[in-house]
Design a protein around this nucleic acid. Structure first.
Lengths: 110, 110
DNA sequence: ATATATTTGACAAATGATGTCAAGTAAATT
DNA sequence: AATTTACTTGACATCATTTGTCAAATATAT
């Protein structure tokens, strides 16, 4: 039996907009909670600007989204765009994983 | 039987310095080939400055290192530092891989 | 039509990336 | 030990990117 996993390839912006609208919140309401201009939030939702990590955390809060999930989407999206044009993108990710493990194992100090 | 892979966790800077010295080249010689001040190269080798992608390409050339290998080390190092402090680093990399695949499959259009 | 919500673009400020330069230190040579 | 050669350091300059403000333009809903 074949199991197929359907990957939902929504951007963080799309996730945010969808959830905001489903909650009936206005840009200005959400934006003021994040302490940014609604223009920026508008652009974030349309992938015209990148949110900061703090933006993401506050967005998860007000939109009742799981913070870690949203952060994972956000950071992985940033990385994916960063390396998508490299031939060796997938090798890069594998090596990065080893380096992360190494760094974490030495994170005792500092 | 257990196979263990020893991961060499040299930084790009260390790789470059080691190879430059083994070739008996001076900072100033290599730097001039990269068209940068030797002070920058010195800092790159000691991980005090980040090289540009162009720097890496020229370094591979003059130091007779494999360009793709060096680029992979360089980019993965950048990414590893970027996310090493996240709890969800390894989840991030897995999701990033999916996103990259998705982006590449849609890379037909621009 | 009017009011409300969103989008757009010009601009500003802060931050980060990238480089120059000269003076300081370290290492090797005479 | 003095000199030369190599490397390091820090102050500074320049430029690009990020992050934000604001007001006018557009779209949507009453």
């Amino acid at each position: 039996m074949m199991s197929s996993k359907l990957i939902q390839m929504e951007t963080v912006g799309q996730i945010i907009r969808a959830k905001r609208e489903s909650l009936g919140l206005l840009l200005r309401q959400v934006a003021s909670h994040l302490d940014i201009d609604q223009a920026i939030l508008s652009k974030i939702e349309r992938n015209e600007r990148k949110p900061t990590k703090q933006n993401i955390i506050k967005l998860a809060e007000i939109l009742k989204l799981d913070e870690e999930d949203l952060l994972v989407q956000f950071i992985s999206e940033r990385i994916a765009y960063e390396i998508a044009d490299e031939d060796c993108a997938s090798k890069v990710l594998k090596v990065a994983e080893q380096k992360v493990k190494y760094l974490k194992s030495n994170l005792v100090k500092n």
